[in-house]
Design a protein around this nucleic acid. Structure first.
Length: 868
RNA sequence: GCCGAAGUGGUGAAAUUGGUAUACACGCUACCUUGAGGUGGUAGUGGCGAAAGCCGUGUGGGUUCGAGUCCCACCUUCGGCACCA
C-alpha cells in the first residue's frame, strides 16, 4: 500500500477494475429483488455542472448501497438531447444542432465516467435519435386514435419583426430577445394531449405515492386544482338571436351581488361588440400586446373597457353590463367571469377603478361592511351568511350554493360542475430541433396521420437555424410528400414536439433500449416502477406530472402495468455560490467569479470585505445564488476532479448539506473533504503496516475497547438507517468522521486493540464505499480482502456489541439543565426519580422548595417542577 | 399575484417521535512541528459576566412541566407558474 493517498492512481485503478469485470452491467433476474435507481437525465449543454454532479452522486450512493444490500440494481444514463439551447448554439456558431449535441454528449459522457458512477452504459439512449423518438410518434398516433391527441388553436408569443414564435425564455421584459420588438399574443393551430381526461386519476393517485415528498404532492394537487362550482349562463340577445354568456364560479352564493361581467379580449362577444366600436377594437388590440406568461398576467395592471352589451341576470332578470378585461384568460374556463366586487378582491379594485357598483350580499356578524377599503372577511365563505339576496337571505355558503344551483338548473341555465385548473398539454413547437409530429396535410383529405409503416418521420440533421422561424419549412425534401390516403402531393407537418414528451417515458425505454421492433417489452415489467427517482425540485410539477400522465396512457394502451412510474422520489436542492460584482458609475454590472475574489477577514474570522485578486480593489457581494453563466459564479466540476479527484468532489457534495436542501459551494470545504480522505488513508496505512491482526476474539475486552467497539457498531447502525431510510448522507459522513477521530485517539497497540481497530476500519470502508468508491476500493484490498468492495456485503451491527450497562440521564429543574446522573439501563421510573432527586447539584437548585411534579422520560431525562 | 419550501455560532450544518441547542466540518486564535508552496499535530472557540449565572434557533404572540420542533400573524430569501430543461 502506498504511504500517500494518490487520487489519480487510485481512481484509475478502481475504474479499470469495474470496466474489466463489467461490474455495472444490469441483467434481468426474476430470482433476485431488483432496485431501479434513476437520476433525471441531463440536457447535453456542453459540460457537466455542479447540479449534475450532485444529482448523479446521490443516485450513485443509493445504487451502490442497494447493491451491497444484495439487490439487483439498475442505474442507466442517457441524454435529453432535443431542445432550444442547441438552436441557440447553432445561431451563435453556425453549426447544426445535431453536431453540437453529439459533441457535447461525447464530452459529458467522459466526464461522467471520470466521476466513477456505477452506470450500465449498455442502455444509453439519446432522445434525438430516430430509434428513440419514433416511439414518441407511434404513441402520439395511438393517442390520436383514442381522441387523447387533438388539434385546436392556442396562444403563443409572437415576435412581429422576426415573424417567429418565441419561447417564454426568449421574451425579456415583454420584448423579443433578438429583435427587441414588443411581443404579441397570436393564436395558431396546435396539437394537444388531453391530460385533463386523467385529472381525476392524477389527483387521486397521489395517495399511492407515500414515498414522495409531501410538498411535491401538495404542489401537484394544487396544480391540478380540482374545484366544484357552478357553471351558468347570462342570457342576452345579439342581432335578435338568443345567446348565452357562460361563466363558471366557485362562489355561486354571491351571485346576487353580480354587478357586471368580464370577458377575455378574444371572446366572441368582445369581437362582436368591437365591430362598430373603434375604441373597443383598439383596446382589444392593446390586450394582445404582452406575453402569455401566467406570472405576467397575474401581476399586470388590471384594465377594462365596457362592450356596451348588457346580459340578463339569470335570477333577478336585471341587466348586467359586460366588460372586456385584460385579466380574463380565454384559455381558462369559459373565457368569461361574473364579477362580484363586494366579495372578490380583484373585482373590488376593478369596480373602484371604473366606478362600478358594489353590492354587499354576504355578512359576517360583528363586522361592518364599507366600500372604502377591502377587508379580508368580505371573501370569507366559512363565516358569512347571505344578505340582500331575497329568498337566499340567511343561508350559509353550502346552503346558498345548493339552492342557487338548483334554481339555475330548474331554469335550464346552469348546474353544479367540477372544474380543473389543469389545462390540456399543448405539444406543438414551431421549432426545428425536436421530434417531428407525424402528420401530413393534404388539400383533399385534411390532416392525415403518418401510417405506422412509415415511421419514424426522420428529422434531417444538417439544418442550421438562423433565428427567423423553423428551417424545416425551407426543406422541400422534408416538407413535400404524398398523402398516405389519396397519394396526391401533400405537405408534411413541420412543428415538432415539446421536449417534455421525450422525457415523459425515457425511464421505461432504459429497460429495453435495444428493442428496434417495439416501444417497450417484457423487461419493463421486471424493472418498473423506478424504485428511486432523483432530480431537481424545479421539476416538481411539469416533468413529473407529464410523466405520470404518459405512463397512464401507456398502461391504457396495454403496453405496461402499474399506475405510477416512480415509487419513491427525492428532490435535490440547488447548488449555490456567492455572487460578486462591480457596478461602474456608467455602464453594465460586471460579475466576477468567486475563484478570482479574495475574502478579507478580521482576527476572529469575521468577514470585513472582498477584493479582486488581480487588482486588489474591492468588489461587492450580492449574496448567494444558483450557479449560472449570467452571474459568473459557476464552479467547473472538471477543475475540481483534476485538482483533488472524483472522490473528494463526491465527498464534499454529500457532506455539505442534506440532499433536499440547497448546497452552498465552499473551496475550503472541498479542501477539508480532501484532508479527511488523506487522514483516512494514513490511518489505514499505519494499521496495515503494523501487521493485520489474527482472528478476532471480542469476548473479553477491557472497558475502553468495549466502548470503542460499541461506537463502531452504533455508527454502523446509524449509517445504515441514514442511507437506507432517511437519505441523509451528510450525517453518514459526519458519524464516520467521528468514528475515525475516535480511532486516531486510541493508541493501544495490543492484539485485541488491533482487532477492534481492524473491524472499525472495515466498517468505515464499507460505509464510505457508496460515497467514495475509488479510495475505498483500494483501502478494502489493503485491509486484506480479495473481492472488491463494490461486491462486498453491507454488514450488520452486532446486538451484543451494542449493549450498554448504564445510561446518562439529564436532570432538569423547571425545564433548565441542572445535572446529569448515571442510571442502570434497566432502572424503573421510581429508581430513576430517586437517583435524580439525590443528585447534589439538583438538590441545590431545588433549594428546599416544594416539588410539585416530577416528569421522567425513560432513557432521556428527568424534569423536576418546583414552586416559585 | 398564485402555489410550494427555507431561515440555528464568524461559515456549511446537527438535533430522527415535543425532551441535553450548536454533533461533524470549515474558519479563526495560541502553541509545537516541518527547510515555505493544496504541511502535520495539540489546545481553545455562541454572546454577556470575575464568578454564580443569565441570554440565545428570522420577528412578534400563543400552547406545554418542557418548543429549533406544534399553533397564529408577519419579515426575508429561494423554487415553480404551463414554450428553459
Amino acid at each position: 500500500m502506498d504511504e500517500q493517498y494518490l487520487p489519480e492512481k487510485v481512481e484509475k485503478d478502481a475504474q479499470a477494475y469495474w470496466d474489466k469485470h463489467q461490474t455495472f452491467k444490469a441483467v434481468e433476474d426474476p430470482h433476485r429483488e431488483k432496485f431501479y435507481c434513476l437520476s433525471m437525465f441531463p440536457y447535453p449543454s456542453g459540460k457537466l455542472h455542479m447540479g449534475h454532479v450532485r444529482n448523479y452522486t446521490i443516485g450513485d450512493v443509493l445504487t451502490r448501497f442497494m447493491r451491497m444490500q444484495g439487490r439487483n440494481v439498475l442505474q442507466p444514463m442517457g441524454w435529453d438531447a432535443f431542445g432550444l439551447p442547441a438552436e441557440n448554439a447553432a445561431i451563435a456558431n453556425n453549426v447544426p444542432p445535431a453536431k453540437w449535441t453529439y459533441d457535447n454528449i461525447g464530452y459529458m459522457k467522459q466526464q461522467l465516467k471520470s466521476l466513477g458512477f456505477a452506470i450500465d452504459w449498455g442502455r444509453e439512449l439519446a432522445t434525438c435519435k430516430p430509434d428513440y423518438y419514433r416511439w414518441n410518434q407511434w404513441l402520439f398516433l395511438r393517442m390520436l386514435e383514442k381522441g387523447i391527441a387533438y388539434k385546436k388553436t392556442g396562444v403563443v408569443n409572437w415576435d412581429p419583426v422576426d415573424q417567429t414564435v418565441l419561447a417564454n425564455e426568449q421574451v425579456i421584459d415583454g420584448r423579443g430577445w433578438r429583435t427587441g420588438a414588443v411581443v404579441e399574443k397570436r393564436e395558431i393551430p396546435m396539437y394537444y394531449l388531453a391530460i385533463t381526461k386523467y385529472a381525476e386519476e392524477l389527483l387521486a393517485d397521489l395517495d399511492k405515492l407515500p414515498e414522495w415528498p409531501e410538498r411535491v404532492r401538495t404542489m401537484q394537487a394544487n396544480w391540478i386544482g380540482k374545484s366544484t362550482g357552478v357553471r351558468f349562463a347570462f342570457p342576452y340577445k345579439l342581432d335578435d338571436r338568443d345567446e348565452r354568456l357562460w361563466v363558471f364560479t366557485t362562489r355561486a352564493d354571491t351571485i346576487m351581488g353580480v354587478t357586471f361581467c368580464a370577458v377575455a379580449a378574444e371572446h366572441p362577444l368582445a369581437t362582436h361588440a368591437a365591430r362598430n366600436n373603434p375604441k373597443l377594437a383598439a383596446f382589444i388590440d392593446e390586450c394582445k400586446h404582452g406575453t402569455v406568461m401566467e406570472a405576467d398576467l397575474a401581476t399586470m395592471e388590471k384594465k377594462g373597457m365596457p362592450t356596451g352589451i348588457n346580459v340578463t341576470h339569470p335570477l333577478t332578470g336585471e341587466p348586467v353590463p359586460v366588460w372586456v378585461g385584460n385579466y380574463v384568460l380565454m384559455g381558462y374556463g369559459e373565457g368569461a367571469v361574473m364579477a362580484v366586487p363586494a366579495h372578490d378582491e380583484r373585482d373590488f379594485h376593478f369596480a373602484k377603478e371604473y366606478r362600478l357598483p358594489i353590492k354587499q350580499v354576504i355578512q359576517v356578524s360583528s363586522e361592518t361592511f364599507s366600500t372604502d377599503a377591502w377587508q379580508e372577511w368580505y371573501a370569507d365563505k366559512t363565516r358569512g351568511r347571505c344578505v340582500n339576496s331575497g329568498m337566499y337571505d340567511g343561508l350559509d355558503y353550502t346552503g346558498a350554493v345548493d339552492a342557487i344551483a338548483a334554481d339555475l338548473k330548474a331554469k335550464n341555465l346552469g348546474d353544479k360542475q367540477v372544474m380543473w385548473r389543469l389545462r390540456d398539454w399543448g405539444i406543438s413547437r414551431q421549432r426545428y430541433w425536436g421530434c417531428p409530429i407525424p402528420i401530413i396535410h393534404c388539400g383533399r383529405c385534411g390532416d392525415v396521420p403518418v401510417p405506422d409503416k412509415d415511421l419514424p418521420v426522420v428529422l434531417p440533421e444538417d439544418c442550421v437555424p438562423d433565428g427567423s422561424g423553423n428551417p424545416l419549412n425551407k426543406r422541400a425534401d422534408f416538407v413535400n410528400c404524398a398523402c398516405p390516403k389519396c397519394g396526391q402531393p401533400a405537405r408534411r407537418e413541420t412543428d415538432t414536439m415539446d421536449t417534455f414528451v421525450d422525457s415523459s417515458w425515457y425511464y421505461a425505454r432504459y429497460c429495453c433500449a435495444d428493442n428496434g421492433a417495439a416501444m417497450v417489452d417484457a423487461r419493463v415489467k421486471y424493472w418498473m416502477p423506478v424504485d428511486q427517482y432523483i432530480g431537481g425540485i424545479e421539476h416538481a410539477i411539469l416533468h413529473l406530472l407529464y410523466s405520470r400522465f404518459w405512463w397512464k396512457v401507456m398502461r391504457d394502451t396495454g403496453l405496461v402495468q402499474g399506475d405510477e412510474p416512480f415509487a419513491r422520489l427525492l428532490t435535490q436542492g440547488m447548488v449555490l455560490n456567492e455572487i460578486f460584482f462591480r457596478k461602474p458609475a456608467s455602464g453594465r454590472v460586471v460579475y466576477y467569479n468567486p475563484a478570482d475574489v479574495e475574502i478579507r477577514i478580521d482576527d476572529k474570522g469575521v468577514r470585513t470585505g472582498a477584493v479582486l485578486k488581480s487588482d486588489g480593489q474591492p468588489v461587492e457581494s450580492s449574496g448567494i445564488g444558483t450557479m449560472s453563466k449570467s452571474k459568473n459564479n459557476g464552479v467547473d466540476p472538471q477543475s475540481l476532479i483534476d485538482q483533488y479527484g472524483a472522490d473528494t468532489a463526491r465527498l464534499f457534495i454529500m457532506f455539505a448539506a442534506p440532499p433536499e436542501m440547497s448546497l452552498e459551494w465552499s473551496d475550503e470545504g472541498v479542501a477539508g473533504a480532501n484532508r479527511f480522505l488523506r487522514r483516512l488513508w494514513k490511518l489505514v496505512a499505519e494499521h496495515v503496516s503494523a501487521g493485520l491482526p489474527a482472528k478476532a476474539d471480542f469476548s473479553n475486552l477491557p472497558p475502553a475497547l468495549r466502548n470503542l467497539r460499541r461506537q463502531s457498531h452504533q455508527t454502523l447502525a446509524k449509517v445504515t438507517d441514514d442511507i437506507g431510510r432517511r437519505r441523509t448522507f451528510n450525517t453518514v459522513v459526519a458519524s464516520v468522521m467521528e468514528l475515525s477521530n475516535a480511532l486516531s485517539r486510541h493508541g493501544d497497540a495490543s492484539e485485541q486493540a488491533k482487532a477492534v481497530r481492524h473491524e472499525s476500519l472495515e466498517f468505515i470502508t464499507l460505509a464510505l464505499a457508496p460515497i467514495v468508491p475509488h479510495i475505498t476500493h483500494a483501502l478494502w484490498m489493503a485491509l486484506g480482502h480479495r473481492e472488491a468492495v463494490v461486491d462486498a456485503r453491507w454488514p450488520q451491527a452486532d446486538p451484543i456489541a451494542l449493549k450498554q450497562d448504564s445510561l446518562e440521564i439529564v436532570v432538569q429543574v423547571n425545564g433548565k439543565l441542572r445535572g446529569r446522573v448515571a442510571v442502570p439501563v434497566d432502572a424503573k421510573e421510581d429508581k430513576v426519580r430517586e437517583i435524580a432527586l439525590a443528585d447534589e447539584g439538583v438538590a441545590r437548585h431545588v433549594g428546599g422548595k416544594a416539588v410539585k411534579k416530577v416528569i421522567v422520560v425513560p432513557g432521556k431525562l428527568v424534569n423536576i417542577v418546583v414552586a416559585g
